[in-house]
């Protein structure tokens, strides 16, 4: 498909304007994070750029601790989701048993229950388990995911049934088949689901806000809220440096896995 040059120019023009508008909020924040507070308050162009805001943010707030907590929480949820949804997807594809369709419907039904609607009893459950300010309280409720199960089920279905039959003749049990054949074959889907799981759990807000009361397991998202509300002097440079730190891991993940995510999301969503 070749395009006339005038049309090409029009497209590049529209693309550039759109990109500028979409990226402006993040770009402004990025520049501000290196700016002097005086320059920000007077709205002038930056006279000097420095890492002072970042140093301040790390010194005044336990940002490093928050970041570590977020990593632990996000990785735990990602691994939990991968294990649970791959096991469930395996059962839905390779095991035929009575009541399977009913259970599948139950999985679909979970998508109709927003977590926000059941958050009050959930908070009480976590409290009664003694999981407030504990990693399990932040992670375990999110291990089971219908979306992840459907995504992997879609992928597992493409594995030929003959392969399972052959392995059965060779005396391979289901768990071994799941571990040795299915998981390696579905590697890309697992990576996609993992990236998506990490992204969403890193960005969680409401639940960590409720289930943490102190710094021990508080995640960086809630840390950022603290930074923003406690900065009485309106030191926007420091606040923005905090926000930039928060988004760096997910931005890197997104840049690396953009194509994967796009494929995975459309597959899991549409079919």
């Amino acid at each position: 498909m070749t395009m006339p040059i005038s049309k090409k120019i029009l497209f590049y023009f529209l693309l550039s304007i759109s990109a500028l508008v979409v990226f402006a909020p993040a770009l402004l924040a990025f520049v501000m994070s290196f700016m002097d507070n005086k320059d920000i308050m007077t709205g002038s162009l930056p006279q000097s750029l420095s890492f002072d805001n970042y140093i301040k943010a790390f010194e005044q707030f336990p940002l490093l601790k928050y970041l570590l907590n977020s990593f632990i929480v996000a990785i735990a949820i990602t691994i939990g989701q991968l294990i649970l949804s791959s096991l469930a997807a395996y059962a839905f594809v390779f095991l035929e048993f009575k009541g399977r369709d009913l259970l599948f419907f139950l999985f679909i039904a979970t998508m109709m229950v927003p977590f926000e609607a059941s958050i009050i009893p959930n908070f009480h459950i976590i409290r009664d388990l003694g999981w407030i300010d504990q990693y399990p309280g932040l992670t375990v409720p999110f291990f089971a995911t219908a979306f992840g199960t459907f995504l992997l089920r879609q992928n597992f279905k493409q594995i030929p049934k003959e392969l399972r039959e052959a392995s059965q003749i060779a005396g391979m049990g289901d768990f071994k088949f799941y571990l040795k054949v299915v998981l390696p074959v579905a590697k890309t889907s697992l990576v996609t689901l993992g990236a998506y799981g990490f992204l969403t759990s890193w960005n969680m807000y409401l639940w960590p806000l409720l289930s943490t009361t102190n710094d021990t397991v508080r995640t960086v998202q809630i840390g950022l809220k603290q930074l923003q509300t406690q900065e009485q002097l309106n030191d926007w440079g420091v606040i923005m440096s905090g926000a930039i730190i928060v988004i760096i891991p997910t931005m890197i993940l997104l840049f690396l896995g953009q194509k994967q995510l796009q494929k995975g999301l459309t597959e899991g969503a549409i079919k």
Partner: peptide, 9 residues
């Protein structure tokens, strides 16, 4: 890119 930016940020 905005997909990677959390609600808080």
């Amino acid at each position: 890119s905005t997909m990677g930016i959390s609600v808080a940020a």
